[in-house]
Design a protein around this nucleic acid. Structure first.
Lengths: 122, 122, 122, 122
DNA sequence: GTGGTCTAGACCACC
DNA sequence: GTGGTCTAGACCACA
């Protein structure tokens, strides 16, 4: 039990999110070689088939490449990585606005709170 | 299965958060009578004891009051409700900044993204 | 269920204590006629036999008298009432000292606290 | 039946009081490890859940700390322990005065009785 | 009907 | 082993 997976969403989808985060945040850098499917599966304590499915998804997105003989590497296309990062950020921002509005805050108030948070240093 | 409860956190803690949200967002207003423990438990599909534990926590925070024979009501202290809302907002903002920084965004960039989101109307 | 009786001690003994208190505190005054056994039993929701036993105990102590034809009255001997009061007070004081010493307070400290309580007006 | 629990008050509340007393009176000292929930429950002959509820209350008050894997300890904050002791003493004094006044004693008389009790050595 | 309490028994995560 | 959580089901007091 290693990666805080829950039963809400398909496991593989959660793996995709986590790996995406690790790549766009620079934990794995452009061109880095990834651990093997078996290793990753062991780290996350999931079935290798599930990890395989997640990696296939990431490959479809272009974030990782498969070298038939030498495992998988993170894409060299740092432009794509940045773009993916923007996309994730967009989702987080949308979620943030959604919940803040459910709390009853207007756009202006949210902006003010964000500015205030920056000034306070956190 | 009614309230999107997951296994990450204790159920009762999630119930507390949801009920807090419903109160501070005005879904239940100051002075409103809440459904009975048993009703709320049925709505959330949890055991009445679990719901009771959540309600006890809310009472400790002062957000609800208990009239032993006639059910529970939301506090009349709308000042406290507003204060709780601010506190929750603060937590969400902190979480938002934390994840955005893990994605590699600076304070300035986050602010710019937030402004952009507001201009785009989402 | 009327007189906060519990199962720790015999019911009749608890009735004795309560009636004693009511007499020495002046709720029933010297010479007053008491309600009938049946009435008292109903008030306390106990079996009349149990109330009878309690009243017999009080009669043995001299706090009440039985007039065969006209029920029971509180003793006219207000000296005895005062003496019983002193005795009860002595017990409460002993209990008070016992618990305060278990809390680790010395005689001097207890006296100081009592004086302080009086000055504070409670 | 081990801890003289009665039906007047909720069992868990009585457990809280007893444990509080054991801590402030030095029976368990600052930093001491407490017996496990199950042991304490067995000692008091109550259900472990009931004991847990009492311990949770004590933790909320700060009197004990929980180390999830290695049991509970009394707080190191001996200042808090002393403060709790004062608070308990205050309650006992208030109760004492209340019952003495119901017996018809004035402040002065109560003070005299307390002094007398000290001189008598009990 | 309401909330409150208690028990019994189960499962979980942590180390 | 530890504490924590959850459920199911029972009983109580109050009005």
């Amino acid at each position: 039990m290693a990666w805080n997976l829950n039963a809400d969403k398909p496991i593989y989808a959660q793996l995709v999110e986590i790996l995406q985060m690790q790549i766009v945040s620079g934990q794995y850098r452009a061109g880095d070689r990834l651990p093997s499917v078996r290793e990753l599966a062991a780290i996350a304590s999931v079935n290798p088939n599930t990890m395989q499915k997640a990696l296939a998804e990431l490959e479809r997105n272009g974030l990782i490449n498969t070298q038939r003989t030498s495992g998988r590497t993170v894409t060299e296309d740092s432009q794509l990585i940045r773009q993916t990062r923007s996309q994730l950020a967009g989702e987080y921002i949308r979620n943030f606005f959604q919940i803040m509005k459910r709390l009853g805050y207007s756009d202006e108030k949210i902006l003010a709170l964000v500015k205030h948070a920056i000034e306070e240093g956190i």
